[in-house]
Simulated assay, not measured.
Amino acid sequence: MAWSVVSLRIAYLGWNYHGVVEQPSLPTVGSALREAMESQGIRAKLRFTSRTDRGVSALDNIAFYRGPAPNVSLLNSELPKDIAVWAIATGGIPKPKARAYCYAIPFRLSETECVRRALDELAQAGLGKNIERIDVKSGENFTYIEIYGKSFKKNEIRRIVGRALELHLGRSIGLAPPEGLVLTETLTDMKWEEFHRRKLHLIGKMIERELWRLESSRIILGIIKSISSSLL
């Protein structure tokens, strides 16, 4: 029997996983999804439109395989609470036209120009060629760097954000931590047949809560540092 390609829009908090693609003896989003599918007797090789790394989260990644379609409600009941399938489609292989990422920094950048300078510097190393747009939004306690493009090299966004942080803080950072990075949208021409938006909303709130935990940790560490200084 010739099966159609089944596509699943997935959202997850990536902090507890070693990326989305399966790795031997390590917890990954892909292994959790495969095990949940096997509970319905579906055994298939999963592929993903974006191979997010360890610690990176997503609101709109796409897993796809050739085989029977699952019962999405039952699938979500088998998945860990930090992973959800929120839409399904059958047909051809999904081909992303564009992707959007957001990096959340738990403090306000004093100069958003740091991001532009970082991109200009790293462009000399061949990075940033596929980036179509960057938006920087600053609040009282957060800076959101939104990056749009068709595709990105491994660690490209974290390298850009890390360099922007170096320019802001005046010290070496290297790659920005993966926990602040979220894949927010994968744009395709797929016609999605079934939606479970409540599951998407729940994962979104979970990611938001964990990002604010980063801010709380920063404040607490600042208090501890202040107390320690006063005791000297």
Rank of each mutant, 00 (worst) to 15 (best):
A63G: 07
E121D: 13
W86R: 11
S110V: 04
T90L: 10
I88E: 06
L119Y: 13
P106M: 03
P96K: 03
N61L: 08
E113C: 01
L119F: 14
G67M: 06
P80Y: 05
R66N: 11
L74T: 05
K81M: 12
A84T: 10
I88Y: 06
E113W: 00
A84I: 10
K97M: 11
P96N: 01
A44V: 15
S50M: 01
K95R: 12
F48Y: 12
A89Q: 09
K81R: 15
S57G: 08
K81L: 12
T90I: 12
L109Q: 03
A118P: 13
S57N: 10
P96E: 02
T52N: 03
F48L: 04
I93V: 15
A125C: 05
K95W: 01
L46P: 09
P80N: 04
R117G: 03
V72L: 05
K45Q: 14
A98Q: 05
A44E: 07
L122H: 09
A100T: 13
A69S: 15
T49M: 06
Y65R: 02
E111F: 00
E78Q: 10
K97P: 02
R99I: 04
G91T: 14
K95M: 10
R54N: 05
L46Q: 02
D53W: 05
P68D: 07
E113A: 09
A84G: 11
A100K: 11
L79H: 08
N61T: 01
I62H: 08
A104I: 10
N61Y: 10
A123V: 02
R108M: 03
K81N: 14
S110H: 07
A104W: 02
L46N: 06
R43N: 10
L46T: 10
P96S: 04
G92Q: 08
R108H: 09
A69Q: 06
A98C: 02
I83C: 13
G126F: 06
A104Y: 01
I93D: 04
R66A: 10
R66K: 12
I83G: 11
R54G: 07
I83S: 13
K97T: 07
S73W: 04
A58K: 12
L46E: 04
L122V: 09
T112A: 08
A104D: 01
N71F: 01
L74Q: 14
K45E: 15
Y65C: 03
S77V: 00
S77L: 07
A69H: 00
L59N: 09
G126N: 07
A98Y: 03
A84H: 08
Y103T: 00
N76M: 06
I105K: 00
N76V: 11
E78T: 10
P94L: 03
